[in-house]
Design a protein around this nucleic acid. Structure first.
Length: 272
DNA sequence: ATTCTGTCCTGTAGGC
DNA sequence: TGCCTACAGGACAGAA
């Protein structure tokens, strides 16, 4: 699932729908998604008010009174809100159910159970969040910094884009889409990219992610927003999952290559 | 230090 | 209709 645009969409939905509400009761149907002592988790969230909802990379942050509930949706996690007027749907992959004030229910679904929920006191206390690089849509993500980081690495650019220490929030779908937009092959070595190519790549990171946020993310299979609805970016996907089909730009066949155990998709003519 | 592999899980699509 | 294999929006630990 969820890469930056999907998490940002869920974040905005939650901020609009559950901000200011209090967590009245919590039902843990599968403790495997709770990455800390279960009793400690229940004590940390029970009776707490949700002050605000934020995002950092692919992590959702719910600001509670004096603590932070960090949610990593990983591959198949969903956070769906059922307000007063909507009857909650509890499918078999509903792993945690939060009963909130105003008769609102917040359901954490996760088919594959890779997701993680953890309460910490500060962002620096979270093992994953503390290692994140700059936000790609923020000011800290500059061409200069990006160029220096790429210049030092021999690894192929595509798997490197997935490294959250380089830049936070890019996942397997958008990595391929970004490289297509930039016209760069996924197997080029990061250090071999010319300054002009890094500039194009930097621009592509921003424009692809911004457009995906505007379209509320990509629903290939599991992803749903905070209201249980699909995103729309899959309608404008150029290469991801399109191997064997014609390139939307030149008509050549889209290719697939496995790198670091993940599939990459690209056009052998448009990307050099 | 960096880079790659296997692992955590469940569900579904496609081949035979 | 099955059965079997491959694969899926992520992140780690461990090994090379």
């Amino acid at each position: 699932m969820p890469e930056l645009p999907e998490v940002e969409t869920v974040c905005r939905d939650l901020d609009r729908m559950v901000k200011g509400l209090t967590i009245c009761d919590v039902k843990i149907n599968d403790p495997r998604v709770i990455r800390q002592d279960r009793a400690a988790f229940l004590k940390a969230v029970g009776g707490k008010k949700i002050i605000a909802v934020r995002r950092r990379g692919k992590a959702l942050i719910l600001d509670l009174d004096g603590s932070l509930l960090i949610v990593q949706l990983m591959m198949t996690g969903q956070l769906v809100v059922f307000p007063l007027e909507k009857k909650p749907v509890l499918a078999r992959d509903a792993r945690v159910v939060f009963g909130l004030s105003k008769n609102t229910t917040l359901v954490y679904n996760d088919q594959r159970l890779f997701g993680r929920l953890e309460v910490v006191r500060a962002l620096e206390d979270h093992a994953h969040v503390r290692t994140l690089g700059p936000e790609p849509l923020g000011k800290d993500f500059s061409v200069e910094r990006f160029f220096l980081a790429l210049h030092a690495r021999k690894t192929p650019i595509k798997p490197f884009l997935l490294d959250h220490r380089l830049v936070a929030g890019i996942g397997n779908i958008y990595a391929s889409e970004i490289l297509f937009k930039a016209g760069i092959r996924p197997d080029r070595r990061a250090c071999d990219l010319k300054k002009s190519e890094v500039k194009r790549l930097h621009q592509a990171v921003r424009s692809v992610l911004a457009k995906a946020v505007a379209l509320r993310g990509t629903s290939m299979r599991n992803y749903r927003d905070g209201q249980g609805q699909e995103g729309k970016y899959q309608k404008v996907i150029k290469v991801y999952g399109r191997d064997g089909k014609p390139c939307v730009s030149c008509g050549a066949m889209i290719l697939k290559k496995v790198q670091s155990q993940r599939s990459s998709f690209f056009c052998g003519k448009c990307q050099q």
